[in-house]
């Protein structure tokens, strides 16, 4: 069997997801052996202008040039996988979308609005078709590996579409929300094995929102009843998933 040609690319983000792939110490060699890695911005300087079976793309899209490059990658790839919260949802850099305009941000940071052209931070899916999403800030190593094996086998991996609460209960954790902290677990997709609540810390929603579940209004109501300030709830919801329509609408 011919090895699948793989490209790993990064846009606006911290490159933490690419780093997670490199951190797969135990499996990295097997993985590299199984794949024909044509482009890996972070791991090597080699960029072969080639066609890809799978492109893993990290980071959000914030400039016209990035948009163009992303479209190129899409055209050259059979499958495009968004990795990490920035690529999946637009990242922390999207948290003020719809509140603070891009030009105002430019003035704040650079003193002038015309340094260069930028967009509001958007996920890859705002511009191209995304075949699969591996969410998280950063992504989970094990989840990446599982997705990679599925892709190697020829299948689209199975997305986690159930909340962190499920993994919390499977691990027999008490409920952080009931204990009085604003936990986003109920609306955030699992796959992290309830990493934060298992340590007694509330879920910050780094894996975004369960797509299509429409429980945001209910969550806001529950948080309100638990005594959390409206503004604080809004900020927390916006941190990693501001581009989700139901969150973008929150006043």
């Amino acid at each position: 069997m011919k090895k699948p040609r793989v490209g790993i690319f990064g846009f606006t983000g911290c490159a933490g997801d690419q780093l997670m792939i490199l951190n797969l110490e135990d499996e990295l060699l097997d993985l590299v052996g199984a794949l024909d890695i044509k482009s890996f911005t972070m791991a090597s300087s080699l960029v072969e202008d080639d066609e890809y079976d799978v492109a893993f793309v990290e980071g959000s899209i914030t400039t016209p040039k990035q948009k163009e490059k992303l479209e190129q990658i899409r055209n050259k790839s059979k499958l495009l996988v968004a990795i990490g919260d920035c690529a999946a949802w637009g990242g922390v850099q999207a948290s003020c979308n719809g509140i603070v305009s891009v030009s105002k941000k430019m003035v704040e940071v650079y003193g002038s609005r015309n340094v260069w052209e930028i967009y509001e931070s958007k996920p890859l899916s705002a511009y191209v078709k995304v075949d699969f999403v591996l969410p998280g800030c950063p992504i989970e190593k094990e989840e990446f590996l599982r997705a990679a094996t599925s892709l190697l086998h020829g299948d689209i991996p199975e997305a986690v579409d159930y909340p962190v609460c499920v993994e919390c209960k499977l691990r027999e954790n008490g409920c952080v929300l009931l204990e009085g902290r604003l936990c986003l677990g109920p609306i955030t997709p699992g796959g992290c094995k309830a990493r934060c609540p298992s340590l007694g810390v509330d879920c910050i929603g780094c894996r975004g929102v369960i797509d299509g579940e429409s429980r945001i209004k209910s969550a806001i109501e529950v948080f309100k009843e638990a005594g959390f300030e409206k503004d604080y709830v809004k900020k927390r919801l916006r941190m990693f998933a501001a581009n989700y329509p139901e969150i973008l609408e929150v006043k």
Partner: peptide, 27 residues
């Protein structure tokens, strides 16, 4: 109206029988 569809009620239930199945493939 307040339900978060989080599944906690089922996962702590002593009579809930449902299970899901998934395959985990090695490299």
């Amino acid at each position: 109206a307040k339900c978060l569809a989080c599944g906690s009620c089922n996962l702590v239930c002593p009579t809930c029988q449902c299970y899901d199945v998934l395959d985990v493939l090695e490299l």
